[in-house]
Write a protein that binds this DNA or RNA. Structure first.
Lengths: 264, 264
DNA sequence: GTGAAAGCGCTAACAA
DNA sequence: TTGTTAGCGCTTTCAC
């Protein structure tokens, strides 16, 4: 099937190519009802589909949203990706998904690729503080939003949960229910970076314990950063000789969110 | 930061715009080493990034791969999407992901949107036989591949597992291990469509039972099409009065695959 | 309300 | 090996 272009439609409808555009885009100029009908009929008869690439080229904007996540196989990010896709779809946008696999290089790779594709917007669930990523973002003054994590080198609008507050609330809640103390199972704490959800959870737990006058020493447990190991460590902990009376573990589930805007 | 175009680079390097293209694309014409150096230097100095949309427009091909799945939140499809993305990324392609959410309309929507975006290729994990989807595919003679499911109205290259054979093997295996009979937990069997993995699994189980001279009546159980309900039904079954001696349940995990090519 | 035409930034003939 | 230039299919300004 030979490609049908806007010119074919115009010819068939006996109008100019501009009018065809006006009909397709509902603007920017008005079109007489009768003309519009002729154009629509021609479009249907010819099976015309506008070429989105050409549209993007001429209008200088795409209908693409880029989404970079550490690993979309993880239920938390899978859920996130699905939600983003749904919201985008409702607004006539398509979503490019990239997995950074927790690697700086891949994060930068997708940043570069997506921005080069002139995405209308980019959502970045950063996998950690990365100077190269920050530099890459600066190079294109692009519309980007950080989600879930707010690594310090990148200074953009961010949508994050109140991780410190949440963990603090949870811990306080358990204490109020009579637990003598609360242990915390908090991921591998290497460089407790600000803006890292797990670090923030641990911080929230620490605050709640401290405000209750309880020591935290020896009550923070760690496991590799995935559900299987966390589960195993949790079981060991609960079955061991020093079974804690209560335990908080950072849940990876998006609920409410707060929005931080950079000074700019 | 004002947009840097290829023309700026050419001017800066003191060459023509064509040479800049030759350098960027490593062809189609050779470039003298010295000239190449000047161009590369100019690119770096100016922070030039080729506009992928313009490239696509001019070359009439994008670096986009479309992937349509029923629901990327499900581990099976999440795994699949990740694998596709990884393979695409290795080949310099980006992946557009669309969830059909098991709805014809959404499947067609993404088919139309992705093909309109002139994706270089499209992978469709169909959510079921759909005449409209088939029609949409025919409308664009596009490069598409069916994955996991091969609904009858769509006649394209398909990559699927041997679902009948797999279930048959599993059932036979259990019987050879001495099970008096094998029950099957097989999803909601509405219209046992050919090419639907679960229908095929059931068929495989049926064949193995039949070849062993065993009746299947009353031994096929059904549950809604998700892991939670399947788990519940499975538990009930195993705890009930008619606990079957052995049970096969279609696993949703990709292993080996066979490739069917249409007559064309 | 409609049409002519100038780009959008790049690729790839074709010419030199 | 390098340069010139005609498009790619569409949007949008501007004149009618």
């Amino acid at each position: 099937m030979a490609k049908v272009t806007r010119d074919d439609v115009a010819r068939r409808a006996g109008t100019s190519t501009a009018v065809v555009s006006y009909v397709i885009n509902n603007g920017p100029r008005p079109v007489a009802p009768a003309t519009r009908e002729r154009v629509l009929a021609a479009i249907k008869e010819l099976g015309y589909r506008p070429d989105r690439v050409a549209q993007a080229m001429a209008s200088r904007r795409t209908d693409l949203i880029g989404l970079i996540v550490p690993d979309a196989r993880q239920p938390f990010f899978a859920e996130m990706a699905h939600a983003v896709e749904q919201a985008a779809s409702e607004r006539g946008k398509m979503v490019l998904v990239g997995n950074s696999d927790y690697a700086d290089a891949r994060e930068v790779h997708y940043l570069r690729a997506f921005l080069g594709m002139r995405v209308a917007g980019l959502i970045l669930v950063s996998q950690g503080p990365s100077e190269t990523a920050a530099a890459e973002i600066d190079a294109w003054d692009a519309r980007i939003v950080l989600l879930h994590r707010r690594p310090s080198p990148i200074d953009d609008v961010a949508v994050v949960t109140d991780d410190v507050g949440g963990a603090q609330l949870a811990t306080r809640h358990l204490l109020e229910h009579g637990a003598p103390y609360v242990a915390c199972l908090g991921g591998t704490e290497q460089t407790p970076a600000e803006g890292d959800p797990v670090s923030d959870h641990v911080e929230g737990w620490r605050r709640a314990m401290t405000e209750a006058g309880l020591p935290t020493a020896g009550r923070l447990f760690q496991s590799p950063y995935n559900r299987y190991d966390a589960y195993r460590v949790g079981l060991e902990l609960l079955a061991g000789p020093d079974r804690p009376p209560a335990l908080v573990q950072p849940l990876r589930r998006l609920r409410s969110a707060s929005c931080a805007r950079p000074a700019s």
